[in-house]
Write a protein that binds this DNA or RNA. Sequence first.
DNA 1: TGGTGTCATTGGATCGATCAAGACCGTCGA
DNA 2: TCGACGGTCTTGATCGATCCAATGACACCA
Lengths: 342, 342
Amino acid sequence: MTRSIGRLATPPTLADVAERAGVSRQTVSNAVNNPDLLRADTLARVLAAIDELGYSPNRAARNLRTRASHLIGMRINPAQEGTANATMDRFVHSLVETSREAGYHVLLFSGDHDDPVSGYDDLLRSTAVDAFVVTDTYLGNPQAAWLQQRRAPFVAFGRPWDNPAAEHAWVDVDGAAGTDLATSHLIERGHHRIAWIGWRKDSFIGEDRRSGWSRAMHARGLSTTGLASRVEDTVASGREASAVLLDEAHPSAFVCASDTLAMGVLHTLRERGMEAGREIAVVGFDDSQVAQVVPPGLTSVRQPLEQVAIEIVKALEGMLAHPPVVGPGVMLTPRLALRGSS
Amino acid sequence: MTRSIGRLATPPTLADVAERAGVSRQTVSNAVNNPDLLRADTLARVLAAIDELGYSPNRAARNLRTRASHLIGMRINPAQEGTANATMDRFVHSLVETSREAGYHVLLFSGDHDDPVSGYDDLLRSTAVDAFVVTDTYLGNPQAAWLQQRRAPFVAFGRPWDNPAAEHAWVDVDGAAGTDLATSHLIERGHHRIAWIGWRKDSFIGEDRRSGWSRAMHARGLSTTGLASRVEDTVASGREASAVLLDEAHPSAFVCASDTLAMGVLHTLRERGMEAGREIAVVGFDDSQVAQVVPPGLTSVRQPLEQVAIEIVKALEGMLAHPPVVGPGVMLTPRLALRGSS
DNA sequence: TGGTGTCATTGGATCGATCAAGACCGTCGA
DNA sequence: TCGACGGTCTTGATCGATCCAATGACACCA
C-alpha cells in the first residue's frame, strides 16, 4: 500500500529508505534500478521500506547524475482558427500515451512564429530534454538540419522533403497512398470526372497528395485535364475553387487535400442546393472532428497517428540507447474513413 | 552572438564560464540570477563569457538545488472521437504560450482512464513538477481534494462544483452567462419558442448552462415548458432530441450545451430539408473548429481560453511565490461568435 | 588450511548548480 | 589611526541520486 506523505515538508530520499531498511543508499538505488543485483530477501525488505515511505526517486537528482531527463520536447504552434486541422491534437494525445509506456514525459514549448528554430536552443543547452519530436515540417525542415548540426537527438514527423539524403530519423504517412485510396474509392462508385482541390505548389505535402489523385486517375485511363486547382488552405478558397470547377469542368466528385477545403466544397453545394453524397461526392483529408460530425458525414483520409506516435517513440528509444541506433525512415499508410459524403 | 556549441560532447558549465571570465563560480551564478550584485564591468565580462561559450544553466542541477523544476504538469485525456470538443487543444496552446512568458514549461502526462488521480502521484513525489493545472473537472473534482491533502500546488480550470467551500485556486468560465447571451440574442432576433438541448442532470456544467437559457427565457416572460431535453453529448443524441422537440414543441430555435449537440440539430434539419439559419436558428457552445467551418457557420458561445490561461498562470505564480498567495476563484465571461446558423 | 572467484553490499566521489558564510577592499566617522 | 560597514567576490558545503572501486561473506577446490 502506498501511504500518504503525511506532514513531511519534503519527500523521503534514498537515505531515508536506506535507514529504514537497514541497508546502504546504493542498495536502495539498486533495488529501484537493478533489482537482479539484490538477494531476494533484501530486495523485499527494501521495496517494503520504499512503499511504506512512499518513496519516489527525485527526478532532478537523477537527471543530474545520469545526464538524462526522460523528457521529450515538442514545439507546438497555435492552431489556425477557421480550419479543420485537429491533427496535432490527436497526435499529441497518442504521443503522450506512448511516451509514458516508454518512461518518457512530453514537454511542450512554443517559439516565435517567424523563427522555426527558436525554443529548441535553450532546452538543448540546458539539457532540459533528452530529445525532440519535430512536427511542423510543412515547408521543408530547417529544424532538422539545425538539430543535426548540434547533434541533438530528434525524430521528425514528416519526410525530409527538401533533402531526401538527410539521415535523421523520421516517420511519415504516405499522403499519395491516401488520396489514391480516396480517388480509387470514388472511381469504384462510378465516378469518372473527379476533381482535385489542393494546396499551392510550394507545399511538398500538397504535391504529394495531389500525385495520389492523378496516379489513380491515370491508372484507370481517366483524364485529369482541367480538373485540378491549387489554392490556400481555407474554407473560402475551397468554396471558390469548387464553384469554378463545377461550372467549368463539371466533375461529379471532389478529392481535397484537407478537410478544410472539403468543407469549402460543402459550402458551395449548399449554396447551389445540391446534396453532398447523393449528387456530388466529396472526400477530405485528415479525418478531423469536422469530418466526423458534419452532416451527412465527410469521407476522409485518416492518418494512423497512433501508429505514428508508436513508431516515433520506437525511433527515439533506439536513438537514446547505448550505442544509439538510427534506423531508416518509416512510412505508414493511411486508411479511408467512409461517410455520407461519398 | 550565440555561437555553436561546437564539437563539445557536453555543454559548458558554470565552472567553464567562471574560468573564462576569471571569476568564481558563484559570481557567474549571480550574473545569471542576481545581476545587481555585480559591479558593472564584472557583469559585462561574465555575460560576454556566457555568450561566447553558449552557456545555459543545467536544469537538473538547478532544479536539484532550488527544489523547483519550473514545470507545470497537466494531465490530458484522449479526446473523444466523434465529438466537436476542441476546447482542450486551444487551451493547451494558450497555456503553453502564457507559461513560457512566466518562465514555465508545460509537462503533459496521461493516466488510467478510470482513475482520476493516477499520474499525479508519481510526478508529485519525484518533484518532477512545481504545480498542476487540473482541467478534467466535468463531474466533480476528486483531484482537487486529493492534491490539496498532499499540499500540492495546483489551479483548477473549473469551479469546485461539488464543494463550493473548497479553498483552492480556480478559474472558470461562466457557462450560464454564455447561454443567457445566446438565448437573449435569439430572442432579439424575434424567436419566442427556443428549445434547449443539454446534458444529463449529473453534469454540473450542463445544469449551469441550462440555467442561463431558462433565466433568459423567464426574464422576457417566455415559457420554457416542454422545450428542454437532456441527453448524452453525442451527435446522434442531439439529432434525436431535436427531432422529437421539433415534432412536439415546435421551436423556432435551439440553444445547445455543446457544438456536438448543435451538429445533431443540423443533421435533423438536413434530413427534413430545412435550412439552419433561415428557418430554424441554432446556437452551439465552445466555438469549436466545427462551428467555424460547417456551412452556414454555427453561432456558438466562445470561451475566453486565452484569458483563462493567463489567469491560471497568474494564480500559479502567486501560489509558488514566497510566501504563497492564494487568491479567490476567478470567473470569466464568454462571448458569442455569430455565424450563419442564427 | 589457504587461495580464488563470485555474489551482495558498501563508502566515497561526483553530476552542476545554489546557499550560507566569510574574505577582501576601500570609505567613513569617531 | 582604528574599527565598523557596505559592496564585491570567493570558498566550502549541499541538494539527492548514481558511478566506481573496494569490501566482506561465502563456497569451492586444491
